[in-house]
Design a protein around this nucleic acid. Structure first.
Lengths: 203, 203, 203, 203
DNA sequence: CATGAATGAGGGTTCATTCAT
DNA sequence: AATGAATGAACCCTCATTCAT
């Protein structure tokens, strides 16, 4: 019995903790790390400020944690989408589609990861670099593989991946600024994929 | 008597203002808008805090001004480089080269413009969007022109420009992180240009 | 659980807020609005500076609030004293007596209201004028009533009230400067009342 | 020759100094001691800030000096008006008239002396008390004299003078708040004088 | 004499964090 | 677990004052 109640309690605690983290992601995404105050977060989460410090050691650590988790989520989603396809064109298209899906369904994820204010938090510099590297790697792997299979000509795969990583992020951010993002989703996926294939000389 | 001396000191004052602005750019570039304090700036400039407020109305206005000026400088440099060439490949190469030159000579310029923390300053949101638009336009114009001249096939010029704008920024930022940036400059310019030409199907 | 303790602590919080307000009144009364710093207040109240801003939005709003409250208290006290008497002489005497009582028991009240520095706070100009008007009205009402009842001859009641309002304030302030204020209280009340009655030709 | 030029220079200097002092009186009268900045004064006087410190040791000393001078001017004017008349009623009327004249012609004088913000400048407390004493004395002297001559019955002359001093100040300040002050000047002088005479039982 | 660039103490305010309840 | 009162370092900015020119 005691075990059960502990179990229940833990679940409740985890639930609350998770809820607060989701709230925090939204607040950080909307206001940025510096402009978002701990009070903003607890107000939006309808808890007292002390509760925040019961669940998290401090603002910076929470943000770091959130950043890591969010980055992992995005990277995993993209990896799954890309790796789940057999051919290079399908891989690219699936990656772009997955990225845009996340942007439309969870815009806060993208805003947290892509909209700056992150570089200036010392403890986050390394984490951010790791994220960029991983993101670039997601685009690079299929390219290098396609080169190996001579589906596309030899080329600087790393550089191509960097450009595509930065370029797709830009497309995503611009898409999120549009009021009718959903309406142009399909065309954006198509045109972006077309661009990518051509850019690596895939025919 | 007073007039002459005023005339003379006017230049000195302007020189000092400029010097302080350069210092401010460096500090803002390094720490970001929020983490950079006015005290940081005046310490680095070796002046008293009151001197800052003698030259500038406040931190935010200065940053806005710096951002605008820096953006103008970068955009002008790129426009000149691109517009000074006759053919599409030369235009792209010149643009990339100019961008990288600035990154190597004035890294603070790039860090100020590209490293976030800007979106969360309300008065800067519009300015930042304007900058991104102008930057994209610089890459888009030659593309659209090349389409018109049938040097490259019809395609979504706007989207291509967005991807290239974001992609080249990513390349630049990655380049700046490298300790031997100058050594790989040439190869980076070449490979990036090659990528761009292929991406829009230019042969 | 939380609720009960909230209920209990609510009272404590209110008590502390009140205590801090009383401290603030003293400090403002002694130094004036401008010379009194928030740090002065919290030092005298033995709390940290953050505590001030936990209880009050800012220095100016607190002062405004204190001024209004203090003015209301003084005006109410005088009104009660005056309205509680049936005849004109008793009314005047009761008003003067009440005023002097407050001056002796709560000198800070008088200093806050009468010692200037208030006119130069834009948001307070209107409040101060309202206070002077109300104060004058307190003296004017019995006079006008006495005129109506032909207990005193027709005369400019408004002007008489203005002079008495300013005159009695002067007497109060002079009284507070005396080291042996209590000793001469009785005589002051008597002589002032006599003066007032004669001034409006009451016999 | 040298002497002459020195003389001329001195006159010029005195003229400038005087002009700056008049400007300062206006600024202090309008904004109060604390809200008025040295920069406000020099801007209005069209001189550099250094010039201020050439003529005056510091802000506080200047204000003290201005206060003394202004107080002297007002007291002298009132004394002359009162002493120049032979009978008690004429004296009172002349005093009131003179006071109102100054208020209408040189409102800054009255605002500087009467509108608070003065009590909170430590070095001015004594000066202000002296001024109030002198002002009261001006009203008291004729009263005491009238008592001695049995033109009015025995009474507390000091207290009567205090009330009149404070009361007349109040009338003056209220008058200055009116937009059509000049129009009601005559009636105000008459009614105030009538009040005063009756208040000391003069028939 | 006059100028105005330069100084820095000090003021109001914010906000991450602690801890007694 | 949860609360929220309390803390104080640190921030941005003002303004009286100085001094080299």
């Amino acid at each position: 019995m005691a075990y059960k109640s502990t179990e229940k309690t833990r679940k409740k605690k985890d639930a609350k903790r998770t809820a607060m983290m989701q709230t925090a992601v939204r607040v950080f995404a909307k206001k940025g790390y510096y402009a978002a105050t701990v009070r903003d977060i607890v107000n939006e989460a309808n808890v007292a400020i002390g509760t925040f410090y019961f669940y998290f050691p401090d603002k910076e650590t929470l943000f770091l944690h959130l950043y890591e988790e969010t980055a992992d989520f995005l990277l995993q989603s993209l990896r799954q989408a890309v790796n789940g396809r057999a051919t290079f064109p399908k891989q690219m298209q699936a990656g772009v589609q997955a990225y845009i899906n996340i942007a439309l369904f969870e815009p806060a994820v993208i805003q947290l990861l892509l909209s700056g204010s992150v570089d200036t938090i010392p403890s986050l510099a390394a984490e951010r670099e790791k994220f960029r590297d991983s993101l670039t790697a997601i685009w690079q792997r299929p390219i290098d593989e396609a080169i190996r299979l001579t589906h596309i000509p030899p080329q600087n795969g790393r550089l191509a991946a960097e450009i595509l990583a930065g370029g797709i992020d830009e497309v995503i951010l611009n898409l999120l600024k549009q009021p009718d993002a959903e309406r142009i989703e399909k065309a954006t996926v198509h045109d972006t994929t077309t661009f990518i294939l051509r850019s690596v000389a895939h025919y």
